[in-house]
């Protein structure tokens, strides 16, 4: 009885939260299918007075650029997520081991990167001059791999708290190598955190426009988010700088196009999201321990 009450309470809270989160998206989607003139004269609305797919057909007209951008986004996201996850887990596991020599110093080495950075210009120079990555796919993947060590600390904490030291020790005594322990025992026990970090990395890569803005000037390497961001930032720039009154605003894309770009930027992420969620299923860890 009490349990049921609990469930009702929890569900009603989430229904309210879900509505709050969904409403703006409904608005976003609806604006993307509203006629341009209607947005300007009647404002954004949940039920547009004049429907129009003009924005999407405008984007469809540029389909080669759009599909190319999707391709870039997908390649970068898949490669980046995979490599990032592998490097992070490999680095986090030893740091989670209490018996590792110099553990604190090494942790500090990782942690320090979260607080200090050399700034944009030196980083840019290292990547473009030393590694010659300007205008390459690498430049979209590499700078985001460890996201400044942030995820390493999360994985380390999970390893330290959720992997019983006894099973590692007993495996070691049984003669298993460290790599084997890591691969056969630690990783399977850590699916929840790996899925979480994998999801975070995916989101980061999918939504990244900054590296594209900095390291890429070649339009064939623009990702979806990079295209969207450039469009929006250009509009803002033109609005707020008068350039001696030069006429440049005529080339700004329409409201509905901006919204349609945002919609097609999010959609695929929504589609792969359930795939990650599979791993959040409760009991996965515990089942394995028992």
């Amino acid at each position: 009885m009490k349990n049921q009450m609990n469930q009702i309470f929890v569900h009603s809270v989430f229904i309210v939260l879900a509505a709050l989160c969904l409403f703006p998206f409904l608005l976003l989607f609806m604006s993307s299918v509203t006629e341009e003139a209607s947005i300007i004269s009647n404002g954004y609305s949940i039920w547009p007075s004049v429907f129009s797919l003009e924005a999407y057909s405008y984007l469809w007209n540029q389909k080669s650029a759009m599909f190319n951008a999707y391709g870039i986004t997908i390649v970068v996201t898949v490669v980046g997520t995979f490599v990032g996850l592998v490097i992070s887990a490999l680095l986090a596991y030893p740091l989670s081991r209490n018996d590792l020599p110099m553990r604190r110093s090494l942790s500090f080495l990782v942690f320090f990167t979260l607080l200090f950075n050399g700034g944009l210009v030196p980083t840019y120079l290292i990547y473009t001059e030393v590694f010659e990555m300007k205008n390459t796919l690498m430049s979209l993947v590499v700078p985001g791999l460890l996201t400044n060590g942030f995820f390493i600390l999360l994985i380390r904490t999970f390893f330290a708290n959720s992997i019983p030291v006894q099973i590692i020790e007993s495996a070691y005594i049984d003669g298993a190598s460290e790599f084997k322990i890591f691969y056969r025992m630690v990783l399977p026990l850590s699916l929840p955190i790996l899925a979480t970090i994998g999801l975070m990395l995916t989101i980061n890569y999918w939504n990244d426009w900054f590296n594209g803005l900095i390291y890429v000037t070649e339009p064939s390497l623009f990702s979806i988010q990079n295209l969207l961001n450039r469009m929006l930032v250009n509009i803002q720039f033109l609005q707020q700088n008068n350039l001696g009154g030069q006429n440049v605003t005529a080339s700004m894309p329409m409201n509905s196009v901006r919204m349609a770009m945002a919609v097609i930027g999010i959609l695929p992420l929504l589609l792969i999201y359930p795939f990650f969620q599979k791993y959040f299923v409760k009991g996965l860890t515990i089942g394995a321990v028992k």
Binding site: V121, E129, L213, T217, L232, V233, N234, L238
Partner: peptide
């Protein structure tokens, strides 16, 4: 030809001229 977006112009030019590109 390298067209650079106006919103990214200041930053991109600054970066390019900071190095030896």
């Amino acid at each position: 030809l390298m067209p650079i977006d106006i919103g990214a112009w200041v930053q991109q030019v600054n970066l390019m001229l900071a190095g030896n590109e």
